[in-house]
Design a binder for these strands. Structure first.
Lengths: 173, 173
DNA sequence: TCGAGTTGGTTGCGTACTCAACTATAGCAC
DNA sequence: GTGCTATAGTTGAGTACGCAACCAACTCGA
């Protein structure tokens, strides 16, 4: 209720903020998709690969991976299926808990990512350098992080009504 | 090249910034979806409805609408099909250019939005109030707007290599 | 050690999206 | 006018995703 200036039409300046967030995200996704589909895996599920590539050992539990990629368990299962079909990822059953499994980058997957990531990083570097100063970039990251933590926590609340995880995320991102 | 600290693993602090953007966007979308599907149209294509509701006359050209909702023309056609099937939107052929058509909120669609928007706005208000100060919110909006404009322009460049639209967007959002 | 309840992951089914190909109208050259 | 090209939108085919239902393995109490 700080500055709720809704017009009769239900308008609200804050709607534009979330609208901007959606548009930016969609636009970025499309931009990346273009570059990646030229020479790589489907361009889809690049998120999955990059999370694995950025993890020591290049492997992660399915549930961890799902959380980090904003996919449901179901969606992740199929994404990993596809990547496995392409030979970029393999599954390994967890020895201590035989229900669970790890998704792991294969050597070929690792090689593919070594080939793809530089271009991807370069694209992001170019974009951010053009748009933001160093301080602004740090600001944006801090602001987004707070919003993300809040939104994630709220989504969990609605889902399970408990889970009591006060710490938003260990070191994921 | 300002601060390109990529590690041997292809890591880069900037990857986390775009990662945060994606996570935040996905989380928000899910949050809204929950609230909307309880009492409304599919929850999907709420974007389309809200853009129409926020436009004077409650109608917009298909192409405009597609651009504003980050959908392809194809995707928008089907979204409008669905909404038309639900009686919330109608099509009107453009008199001056018989190729084009307008999507327009029906009275029922207008009523539905009048019923739904207050809750949506309240949800956003609550979220932003909890997370940001007034200044931070303005900062975020400004930062996002610049990124969006840049990304959109770049996507257009790749698509048509011209179009020469220096002004990013008249008054859309 | 035997259920009862929980958690990690997978599958059936339906939905929504994209890309490419298409139709129809418009605009322009000549 | 007749053709050529560009633009607005739709349609066919394929893909990706979520939800709900499910199975399998762990946990815990008795």
């Amino acid at each position: 209720m700080a500055h709720n200036g809704a017009t009769p039409d239900g308008d609200d300046a804050r709607l534009t903020t979330v609208g901007l967030l959606f548009e930016t995200s969609a636009g970025l996704r499309r931009l990346f998709h273009r570059q990646l589909e030229e020479s790589g895996p489907g361009g889809q599920s690049f998120d999955v690969l990059i999370r694995l590539a950025r993890t020591p050992g290049n492997e992660l539990r399915m549930s961890e991976l799902a959380a980090q990629t904003s996919l449901t368990p179901s969606g992740l299962t199929r994404a990993v299926d596809r990547l496995q079909g392409q030979g970029l990822v393999s599954r390994r059953t967890c020895p201590e808990d035989r229900r669970g499994s790890f998704a792991q980058l294969t050597p070929e997957g690792r090689a593919t990512m070594d080939r793809l990531i530089p271009g991807h990083v370069a694209q992001i570097d170019a974009l951010l350098d053009e748009v933001y100063s160093v301080e602004e970039e740090a600001q944006l990251e801090a602001l987004l992080r707070r919003m993300r933590d809040h939104v994630l926590a709220r989504n969990l609340d609605l889902g399970t009504a408990c889970e009591g995880a006060p710490e938003p995320c260990p070191a994921a991102d």
